[in-house]
């Protein structure tokens, strides 16, 4: 790892009370990204939101399972690359089947994945040996 790279891993119980903790960690992490060329406060809000939505989604898909289950968050910043992985042990879902919201319909739900897709450059959902993983990537503007 280069001296300016960041690798952070946090594990929390599967409960919404930890959304603020993880969101706030993301905001603090943004302060530590050296030479960031964009608006730091906006990036902080966006990462807070993306993680909040990803965790809330994972919690929703874990409710059928044991309350002892954990959520694992992995954030990796390397050069201009930011990668966030959110792991859960739940039933999983089909990301490709989640539609774009219809803005003419005033549905109360269905904007969480939209936020993630809009604010991140790429999103995928897969299952590996650690469980279900929502993986999100963003290219960071950094001064060279």
């Amino acid at each position: 790892m280069a001296p300016t790279d960041i690798d952070l891993e946090v594990t929390v119980p599967t409960h919404t009370r930890y959304l603020a903790l993880i969101g706030n960690i993301a905001e603090l992490l943004v302060r530590e990204i050296e030479e960031y060329a964009g608006d730091r406060e906006t990036l902080a809000y966006h990462l807070n939101l993306v993680l909040t939505e990803a965790l809330a989604n994972a919690i929703e898909h874990s409710m059928c399972c044991s309350p002892k289950q954990k959520l694992r968050v992995h954030i990796h910043v390397e050069g201009e690359s930011l990668c966030i992985q959110v792991y859960d042990q739940g039933t999983g879902f089909d990301l490709d089947a989640v539609p774009q919201p219809d803005f003419d319909q005033l549905d109360e739900r269905g904007r969480g994945i939209f936020f993630i897709r809009t604010l991140m450059d790429s999103v995928n959902y897969h299952r590996d040996s650690n469980g279900n993983c929502l993986e999100m990537h963003m290219k960071l503007a950094r001064h060279s």
């Binding site: 909040t52 939505e53 809330a56 005033l106 109360e108 739900r109 269905g110 904007r111 939209f114 936020f115």
Partner: peptide
């Protein structure tokens, strides 16, 4: 200071 999709949904409700 912060609102997510579920917060927007609550206000929309």
């Amino acid at each position: 200071r912060f609102i997510d999709s579920s917060g927007l949904g609550a206000l929309l409700s």
